[in-house]
């Protein structure tokens, strides 16, 4: 516990937390507005392809609108959590504080565990912030869309809960990846770019594979971490998508692999 406390103290005593906070808030607001605009302007009648029309109709069911809106901010919130979690590790090397840290705690696995703990707490806090804002703002938007708040629905709360799981898993992933990409600048750039652009880029590759190689590649799309977490929190089963638990399994898999490999690597490394 001392170590987690120390990790949170490290985060709190530098500027990084409020810089990330300042970045997050406008991005969150933009996500809410974008979701709102999308639901306000889309209707299944505009879509000609019957399969797609079916998907759009499902997405526009009040319960699915609600789960999407109540988890607004996931995309950017998780990006911030991912970067902060990686920085919890990389800043030790960037600012040469790793020496002091490992002198106090020579058992390096304890330090990494504490970093996982601190990152998870950060993930929970960002989730709490976005969820509280959503609970305030979204009922108003639902009202504007002529829908009830849907807060009585179990599916909505399940989506909010799974959203929490996504934040936690991405936090763990961030620490693991921070250990792998020790250079702070490289870590923030690579993770940021891969997170934002990578999803569409890999999505495109999967699309081409599906089109020209074999249809079953489509089912592997869930291996993209961002796709997996979006799938995991989708309110109800959407047609044409793998079940939600697959998304959870994929994310947990990545988090566990990154966590174990990161710890193993930290134990072996010479600190100089």
């Amino acid at each position: 516990m001392n170590l987690i406390n120390a990790e949170l103290f490290k985060l709190r005593t530098t500027a990084i937390w409020w810089i990330m906070g300042i970045v997050l808030l406008p991005l969150y607001a933009a996500s809410v507005l974008a979701n709102w605009a999308q639901f306000a302007s889309t209707s299944p009648d505009q879509v000609s392809d019957p399969d797609q029309a079916e998907q759009v109709r499902a997405a526009l069911e009040p319960i699915n609108v609600a789960t999407t809106l109540y988890t607004s901010g996931q995309y950017f919130g998780i990006l911030i959590v991912l970067l902060l979690s990686a920085i919890i590790v990389t800043s030790e090397f960037f600012h040469l504080t790793a020496t002091a840290t490992f002198l106090v705690t020579p058992k390096r696995e304890s330090v990494i565990l504490a970093k996982f703990g601190a990152a998870v707490i950060v993930g929970v806090l960002v989730w709490l912030l976005t969820t509280l804002l959503n609970l305030i703002v979204v009922p108003l938007i639902m009202n504007n869309l002529d829908l009830s708040s849907q807060l009585g629905e179990g599916a909505v709360w399940r989506a909010i809960g799974l959203n929490l799981l996504a934040f936690v898993l991405w936090a763990v992933l961030g620490v693991g990846l921070g250990v792998l990409i020790k250079n702070q600048l490289a870590a923030t750039l690579i993770l940021g770019i891969v997170y934002v652009v990578g999803t569409s880029a890999i999505g495109l590759i999967f699309f081409l594979l599906t089109q020209y190689v074999a249809q079953w590649f489509e089912n592997l799309q869930v291996l993209i971490p961002t796709t997996a977490s979006q799938l995991m929190i989708s309110g109800t089963e959407l047609p044409g998508n793998p079940p939600r638990w697959v998304g959870a399994v994929v994310l947990i898999g990545y988090a566990v692999v990154a966590g174990f490999f990161g710890t193993w690597l930290t134990k072996r490394r010479d600190i100089s």
Binding site: N5, F9, T14, T99, L103, V104
Partner: peptide
């Protein structure tokens, strides 16, 4: 107690907080 490199603290953290951070980790 060890002093290894003089430049090993976070640039944006105060000296006092640097010491407190070690205190917290060490109990």
């Amino acid at each position: 107690g060890a002093v290894l490199e003089a430049s090993s603290a976070h640039r944006g953290r105060s000296g006092r907080n640097h010491l407190r951070m070690i205190c917290r980790a060490a109990g």
